[in-house]
Amino acid sequence: MSAVPARMQGLAIFDPGSGEYAPVVEIRRRYAYPSGSYRTFSDEAEQLLPYGLSGLEWNLFVRLLMTHSSGKFEKVVISEIAAKEHSDPANVSRALTLLVQIGAVIKGEKEGRSYCYMVNPLLGFRGPGVLHHEVYNAHARALADPETVTRPRTATRSKRKEA
């Protein structure tokens, strides 16, 4: 996996304990959004552009933004997305892992056989604009409390090989 470029370092920090990139969290002041419900890309999402994401990775990011409610972890069934994308589940899983590593998508707890994911509220938001700051700040507070932080599982391919 390629290293996170310097421009992405504001979005994700490296946690040596888990060996993963965790999203940076900070409480943010409310921005005066126009009223109404919408799906929006924020200006900070532009930092994703030079990262060279593939078409599948963009598809996945946009699909999550279109379908998932902001501020909520929702279950992602990789086989279902792979069927929609006419792609292999392994490729979808790899794309999702990359999005998690660069901080574009946040990984939650396991639910059944699948994990829950959420689009980073700093990059994209879906829902009424007036709720954006509440959603983002609630997420920031939840991550700041270590007991509620859900670290991604660190099982790697090399460990599996050793076993």
């Binding site: 929006t40 924020s42 200006d43 078409g55 700093l122």
Partner: peptide, 24 residues
């Protein structure tokens, strides 16, 4: 720090764009 400003907004019909299979 303030929340980022919205850069642009998407309509529900953007799902049709996902089906186009655009490159990165």
């Amino acid at each position: 720090p303030a929340l980022p400003r919205p850069a642009f907004e998407m309509h529900d019909r953007f799902e049709e764009v996902i089906e186009l299979g655009l490159s990165g």
